[in-house]
Amino acid sequence: MRAWSIHIALLVAAILFVAKGVATHTSTEEAWETAFDESAAPDDRIWAIHLASNRATERSDRIGRDLALSLLGSRDLRLREVALLIDVCRHAFNPLEAPTNTSPPIQDRYVYGPLPRGEWTPHRLRSLILYRRKVGGLPVGGINRMTSTEGDWILRTLRGDDLPPSDEIDRYLRTYGHVANTPR
């Protein structure tokens, strides 16, 4: 029996991990409900959106259009940014007449909409980077990878530090040259 003690311990650990997974499981119905629940706590909602969008085996307009609009209209800036991430963008709603390689129009409108008072805010800059620097190509809104400068900016926004002057950001984005329809 002693010779099998390692196996037994490992099996017990495996059972515990699986049991924890079962105990904390969220059903797909619950995930959908929380994802659309505007009164839910942001963290709960983000996780529920993560589950609902990734479990779906068909592209869902409810996520790609309704949820995207709901998130972008949220007061919580972090929730707005969730609409620009891969989870929601892979369900992006595109009008039937749109070319196949078209960026998600709802997200495009938000990211390239006018800036508040014409100035970059941490949220708007983060939105642009999160939206445009994802892998997956134009159908999910991605073009090119994040540069070190953009990495520095996005980390600054998380730290709460001041951003460079908006003119400088515009100049960089124009020079980098891969951000179509820069705001302003």
Binding site: D43, I46, N54, D87, K134, G142, R145, M146, G151
Partner: peptide, 21 residues
């Protein structure tokens, strides 16, 4: 850059995303 994107996702949203592909 893709690793940094994922790291930002973990920090800011508390979620680990895939890269679509």
């Amino acid at each position: 850059a893709n690793y940094l994107y994922l790291a930002v996702g973990l920090e800011h949203f508390g979620v680990y995303f895939d890269h679509q592909r």
